[in-house]
Every structure is written in C-alpha cells, then in structure tokens.
C-alpha cells in the first residue's frame, strides 16, 4: 500500500514539465547556464544526487523499522 503510494507520486513528479517555461532574455543567457540544462549533462548530476538522497532516505526508513521492532518487543 505504502509502496504503491510512493510509486504513483514518483510518476506524478517525473511527469511534471522539466522546466517551467520562462523567457530566455539576455540577462538569463548571461547569468545562468541556460544551455546547460539542454546538453550539459546536468541530468547526470540530478541522478547522482537523487541516488544519494534516496539511499539516505532508505537508510532512515530502515532505522525507523528497526526501532519499531524494538518497541514492539518490549
């Protein structure tokens, strides 16, 4: 049940438009790496950070479960 909820919400998040449409005016081009999101392999960084984040979150969930077990034993 919980896993289903997580799965569906992930799908929902990923289907969001990757960028909120914004005018690429001159300032935008000058101060932000506008092209980076297109071809600068930024998705690799996002994936790496996501792996780390999800790994840490899974770890927290594991600890949570272990403590729950301890509580139930007592």
């Amino acid at each position: 049940m919980v896993r289903k909820i997580i799965g569906y919400s992930l799908l929902l998040l990923l289907s969001l438009p990757a960028t909120v449409l914004a005018q690429a005016d001159d300032a935008q081009k000058k101060y932000t790496a506008f092209d980076m999101r297109n071809n600068g392999k930024i998705y690799v960084v996002v994936t790496v950070v996501l792996i780390i984040l999800i790994g840490l979150l899974l770890y927290v969930i594991r600890v949570d479960r272990k403590i729950s077990k301890l509580e139930n034993h007592n």
Binding site: I5, I6, S9, V20, L21, T32, V49, L50
Partner: peptide, 28 residues
C-alpha cells in the same frame, strides 16, 4: 514521512532543473 520523501525528491529535481531568475554574481 512519505510527504517528506516526495518533497525532498521534488526539491532535488526541481532545484536543479527548473528555470531560475538571472542574478548578477550569484548566477546558478
């Protein structure tokens, strides 16, 4: 806890990929 996980994943995805306003010095 599920809300927390979803919001953090949204933060990372949106934080890196969404467009941000152009600022001097700060840039990305």
């Amino acid at each position: 806890k599920i809300v927390c996980i979803i919001l953090l994943i949204y933060t990372v995805v949106g934080g890196f990929l969404f467009s941000v306003p152009a600022r001097e010095i700060l840039h990305e």
